[in-house]
Design a protein around this nucleic acid. Structure first.
Length: 278
DNA sequence: TCTGCATGAAAAA
DNA sequence: TTTTCCTGCAGAG
C-alpha cells in the first residue's frame, strides 16, 4: 500500500530481483502492450524512487535507446514480486516482468509509462524533497511551510512541498507531534517543522526495512508484515470513534480535501502546535 | 460470502 | 468537479 516507504522498498526489491538481468516484459491485460514490447529482452540497469514515484531503467541492449519506466501505484495499485517462477496470472496484470531470478506483476496502477529524460525532469520538478533520499533539502521544506497559509494537513500531503507522505503518515505524524491538523502551516514554528522532518526520516526508514508503516510502539518494529493488526499499528489513522491510545478521548474523522483526516481532538486541540513544545 | 471503503493523482468534463 | 484505475481488505452478516 503505497506511501513513500512502500515505493522505496519496491525499488530495492526489484533491484534485487532484476538488476543486471535480461527481463521478459509483457502486458497480459493488454493496456501496456507497446511499452512491454519496447522493454522486453532488455537488461534492468537501475531502480529508483522519489516520493511515491518508481523508476526502472533499462539498457539499450542493441534494441534502441535506453528506456525509463515510470510507475505510480495510486490508491490501489500493487507490484507483487518474488524469487523463482511466476505464479499463474490472476486479474488484470498491466505489466509482468520475468527473469531467471524472479518475477513481478503490476496491477491497478494509476501510471505505467515510458518516459524520456525530459519527461522525467518535468516530473521531478513537481516533487519536493523526499525524506528517504540522501541529501534531501530540508531547508526548502521549512521555507515552504513558512510561506503557506494552508492547513498543515494539506501542506504535508502536497507532493511539491515534500514527496512521499500520504494520508496514513499525515495522520500519524501530526498526532505524534500533537499538532492541530487545521493549523496554518506558517503558524508552525521552524523547529517544529524540522522535528516533523526528522521523525519522518526515522519512520519512513523503518517502514522501508519492515515493508510496512510503523508509527506506534517500537516493540512492533521487528514484527513481519501482516502480523500486526491495524488497531496495533496506528495511533489515529483509521481509528475513528475508537479511544485515543494516550488520553482515551474518541478519535475524530473528517473529510478534508476529499480525503479522510483522523486526529485526536484532545491531544491535538485547536491551535496546538503553534508554540514550540518544551 | 458480501459490501464498502481506501496508504493518489491524473484525465476528462 | 467527476471519473478513472478496477485491487485488497476488514468488518458485517
Amino acid at each position: 500500500m503505497p506511501e513513500g516507504h512502500t515505493i522505496h522498498r519496491l525499488a530495492k526489491d526489484l533491484s534485487g530481483l532484476f538488476q543486471g538481468q535480461a527481463v521478459a516484459a509483457s502486458s497480459p491485460q493488454g493496456r501496456f502492450d507497446a511499452g512491454a514490447a519496447t522493454l522486453s529482452g532488455r537488461t534492468l540497469t537501475a531502480t529508483d524512487a522519489w516520493g511515491k514515484h518508481l523508476f526502472l531503467e533499462f539498457a539499450d541492449d542493441g534494441l534502441g535507446p535506453e528506456q525509463l519506466l515510470h510507475v505510480h501505484l495510486g490508491l490501489y495499485g500493487s507490484f507483487r514480486r518474488g524469487p523463482g517462477a511466476a505464479p499463474a496470472p490472476v486479474g488484470a496484470i498491466r505489466l509482468r516482468l520475468v527473469s531467471e531470478r524472479g518475477w513481478a506483476e503490476l496491477r491497478g496502477a494509476t501510471t505505467c509509462e515510458l518516459l524520456d529524460p525530459a519527461g522525467q525532469e518535468r516530473l521531478l520538478l513537481r516533487l519536493g524533497p523526499d525524506p528517504l533520499r540522501p541529501g534531501a533539502d530540508v531547508a526548502r521544506v521549512v521555507d515552504r511551510f513558512g510561506k503557506s497559509r494552508v492547513a498543515v494537513a494539506g501542506v504535508l500531503m502536497d507532493q511539491s512541498v515534500l514527496a512521499g507522505v500520504g494520508n496514513a503518515f499525515r495522520a500519524e505524524l501530526l498526532f505524534r507531534h500533537q499538532i492541530d491538523p487545521f493549523l496554518p502551516a506558517a503558524a508552525l514554528p521552524r523547529p517544529s517543522v524540522e522535528a516533523l522532518w526528522a521523525d519522518l526520516v526515522t519512520l519512513m526508514r523503518a517502514g522501508v526495512r519492515n515493508d510496512r508503516m510503523i508509527t506506534t510502539r517500537p516493540e512492533h518494529r521487528g514484527k513481519a508484515k501482516g502480523t500486526v493488526s491495524r488497531g496495533d499499528q496506528y495511533y489515529v489513522y483509521h481509528r475513528a470513534g475508537e479511544p485515543c491510545r494516550v488520553c482515551g478521548a474518541l478519535v475524530a474523522k473528517e473529510e478534508f480535501q476529499t480525503r479522510s483526516l483522523y486526529w485526536c481532538p484532545t491531544c491535538q486541540p485547536e491551535g496546538s502546535g503553534s508554540t514550540p513544545r518544551e
